[in-house]
């Protein structure tokens, strides 16, 4: 995969992911309870102490209408970026998604917001400085962020006795927002918990090997897809799936450099 192909594929995946995110935010912006928990009053208080920006911007961002406007902007820009990928498009998407995060006092879904912004930042630089050689380093940066995210998660799990025994998986299942019969069955099967836990730990720790070999990259990308799909099924983390998937072409690209 060459630089151009990798940039285009990353761009298509992140555009799709952010279009879906925009649709979700549009639905969320229509819920009255959302505007009570993240009310203009609460947000004005937050922005007063933490956002060094003009008052007119802070008033707009704290308003009820801003979330709907930002959701629509994210959807339109995502479609535009899909049709015509370019640095200004991804930069605009970066700004809009960042404003949405500010609207939720920093982040909406944590890690997926962070990864979306990392992908958009890399694409803005990648497309903007394609000819100067900086584009290559933007994708290297993205691949490092992606592989490090798995490695760090794996290392943390390896250090934790509850992850090594599989008990942590049971705790995470209890925190799932879903009512699943499967949950109870998995929780009771200690062997399965330990096996699943170690499979995730080993895969995550070894994930950086993807950078050195195309076959390894395919293998680990497949494992990562499976892992993220299981997370969608058990925890509903669909945003993580799209955010992490959109960064994987950067890994395929760096296998050609090393």
């Amino acid at each position: 995969m060459n630089l151009n192909q990798a940039l285009l594929l990353c761009g298509q995946m992140v555009s799709l992911g952010l279009f879906l995110s925009g649709v979700e935010f549009l639905r969320i912006s229509s819920k009255p309870e959302v505007h009570r928990v993240w009310s203009p009053e609460i947000l004005r208080l937050e922005f007063k102490r933490s956002l060094p920006a003009p008052d007119v911007f802070k008033r707009w961002l704290a308003s009820k209408g801003s979330l709907r406007q930002l959701a629509l902007a994210e959807m339109i820009l995502a479609v535009a970026a899909l049709i015509s990928p370019s640095a200004p498009m991804y930069l605009a998407l970066f700004v809009v998604h960042f404003f949405i995060c500010l609207r939720f006092r920093g982040t909406f879904n944590g890690g997926s917001d962070q990864m979306f912004l990392q992908v958009l930042l890399s694409l803005s630089i990648g497309f903007g400085f394609y000819k100067s050689g900086l584009g290559k380093w933007a994708l290297v940066y993205l691949a490092v962020q992606l592989l490090y995210s798995y490695f760090k998660a794996g290392l943390s799990k390896l250090k934790s006795p509850s992850w090594r025994s599989g008990l942590a998986v049971s705790s995470f299942l209890k925190a799932s927002p879903y009512r699943l019969e499967l949950k109870g069955r998995i929780e009771r099967n200690t062997q399965l918990l330990r096996l699943g836990s170690w499979a995730v730990i080993v895969a995550e720790i070894l994930m950086p090997l993807s950078a050195f070999n195309l076959r390894a990259a395919f293998l680990f990308c497949g494992a990562a897809l499976l892992f993220h799909l299981v997370n969608v099924g058990l925890f509903g983390l669909n945003r993580f799936f799209w955010a992490w998937l959109s960064a994987w072409p950067a890994v395929f690209y760096i296998t050609t450099l090393l």
Binding site: E46, R49, S50, D113, Q118, S160, A168, A175
Partner: peptide
């Protein structure tokens, strides 16, 4: 009153730490 630590917390999404599993919550 502006608080710099609160500002850093507000823009934390720009500084990925990938610390999802540092603690079992």
């Amino acid at each position: 009153m502006f608080n710099f630590n609160a500002f850093l917390n507000l823009i934390r999404v720009l500084f990925p730490r990938w610390s999802f599993f540092d603690q079992v919550e």
